[in-house]
Design a protein around this nucleic acid. Structure first.
Lengths: 176, 176
DNA sequence: GTCTATAGGATGATAGAC
DNA sequence: GTCTATCATCCTATAGAC
């Protein structure tokens, strides 16, 4: 992959994430990437193809991010690491995650089967810990970290930070 | 307000919600509303003005929806009604809520201070019930219903339905 | 209030040279 | 691989008639 192609992808990620896919013109991408507009269509068939390339990158990246959790064999650690997930997002990765969440509203991108492995592993963790409704417990925790992630991406980590230890403690003293 | 103006608003709501603001042309709105394109610009200064009109409608509508909860004086009922909120969204209101959630990603729409009264009332309810961290508890519940709402809008009520009674029971047997 | 016609510019995409 | 030049289409918005 050439530097210019990488640059196009990087700029497109940023602009699609911040301004949205339809609101971002290929002209603007080319300008910010210091590249001719025609080059975009040489590397990617069309504008949609550029987005698809970003989505493919994302699928790979997410599965990498999940590895440490999926390999964790201590159920309490699985839960804690899951809770910590949104709080560990580096600012440089905000555009990446923003685009993911925005795409959930795009009709032709069937969203998160990417997160299904996490959901399954969470359910296993809750089962092991003796929770009466492990699947539902997993779904709720997933909802929580999704919404916290959205809050962080919009208003920064600090806006949600106090919830981190609160949640960790909460899941260390379960109702049962 | 004339019938045609109402129709424009209704069609615009639907299209903005489903396809997005930028991806929806005024031409398409006019066509689906059986109205001339020029009329849109007579009634609303420009396309953005049309969106603003929808946002104004939404602010009013949301505060109406919250009234029954904010007037509730039984703290347990406050929580239960909050949990039920997303499950009671009528299908005809999906476009309305979809647009709300999509707008949260739009940089120039400072989102939910509209929900702040609910958050405050929830915090009060948790305080009354003796929860040690009522504000955080309220924030978490708010996160949960936000994410559940998103799930319902994308995949229908049935996709989340089992969580309803699960959550209600969960909040009836608190950890403390 | 509503429609038709149209201006003026932006947009996605292609062709051809280097 | 990359750029320049260009095309056809679409888009928002306005003007003027009814």
């Amino acid at each position: 992959m050439t530097d210019r192609k990488k640059k196009i992808l990087a700029v497109a990620l940023e602009l699609f994430a911040n301004d949205g896919f339809s609101a971002t013109s290929t002209k603007k991408i080319a300008k910010e990437a210091n590249v001719s507009e025609g080059l975009i269509f040489r590397h990617f068939e069309n504008k949609k193809g550029l987005l698809n390339a970003l989505v493919q990158q994302a699928i790979a990246r997410i599965s990498v991010i999940l590895i440490p959790i999926l390999n964790e064999k201590n159920p309490k650690e699985v839960i804690q690491k899951t809770v910590e997930l949104p709080f560990n997002i580096d600012k440089s990765e905000y555009p990446f995650w923003k685009l993911q969440f925005k795409l959930k509203w795009e009709n032709d991108y069937e969203s998160n089967e990417k997160m299904q492995p996490l959901l399954d592993h969470l359910a296993w963790a809750f089962t092991t810990l003796g929770y009466p409704e492990p699947e539902k417990e997993a779904t709720i925790l997933n909802h929580i970290i999704e919404s916290i992630s959205i809050g962080i991406l919009r208003d920064g980590v600090h806006s949600q930070e106090s919830l981190k230890t609160f949640l960790i403690e909460k899941y260390n003293t379960p109702t049962k």
